[in-house]
Amino acid sequence: MKKIKNMSTEKLFKFFVYSALLTLAVSIIIPVAWVFMASIKENSEFYANPWNLPMGVYFENFKIAFIEAKMGEYFMNSVIATTIGLVVLLLVALPAAYVLARFNFKGKKFVDGMLMAGLFVNVNYIVVPIFLMLLGADNMIYDLIEQELVLNNIFVLGIVYAATAIPFTVYLLSSFFRTLPKAYEEAAEIDGCGYFKTMTKVMIPLAMPSIVTVLLFNFLAFWNEYILALTLNPSSGKTLPVGLMSLMQASRGKAEYGVLYAGLVIVMLPTLILYILVQKKLTQGMTMGGLKD
């Protein structure tokens, strides 16, 4: 009797679990599929029920978005800024995170505290100070060589991306480094590795899952970034999210919904693809906050 009761509560539990999981999954799949669907609709279809299926496949939206709205060009800019951001970020954040996690030195507390405080700085209010600073640098450079180098420069944008991501990235990476056993470094020392070699040959490879996680997080952040790109590159070097704004409905103008959704898909697709590629590593790399520290 008891066994049967157990069986049925077990079944009930499973039923609840599956329905909860499925509800959330459906609530994600349907809207995302809807965005893809909307991107091949003709403009007039948007005034009807939004959940209607498209009447046909209208690829013109993508053509207009890519060529007339220059999303193709902006795509390249986004790729450049994001790539530079990620490369610079890894180059500077990995050693810093490693040192902060595994070494004791004077001023460590101070550096930790500063980076911790940096987590709470929001780009939305430091963007203008950054702009004014770069502007000052530009004016100085202009006096010297009659060239403006800093603003409207997609490479500088990438570097600023990297800089603003340092607190979070160092935090994440050093949490991971802290979980690694001391034995690795001791073994490396016995093998005669110097500090540098220990870091590059032993410790960083061990941190790979965490690095992949950091890459994905920051890729998403840089790829979708809007306010820095808009402010620091006012005349050239627009990125995708900035270009997307010009697809939004103009005030007092006709809406081009189809093209807008095509633009949204152009922005979204690379993130989806990258995510699918690295999703397996994601869970491994998330071990942080230190289970054992």
Binding site: A96, L115, G118, Y125, P129, L132, I159, A163, F196
Partner: peptide, 29 residues
């Protein structure tokens, strides 16, 4: 000494970027 140099070298680039693009702008705010 070697350790200190190593620590400094590893931290310097990150702290430099962090100071220029986050600390100074925040002070400016």
């Amino acid at each position: 000494k070697e350790k200190n140099i190593f620590v400094a070298l590893c931290l310097a680039p990150a702290l430099l970027l962090f100071t220029i693009f986050m600390v100074i702008p925040t002070l400016n705010v």
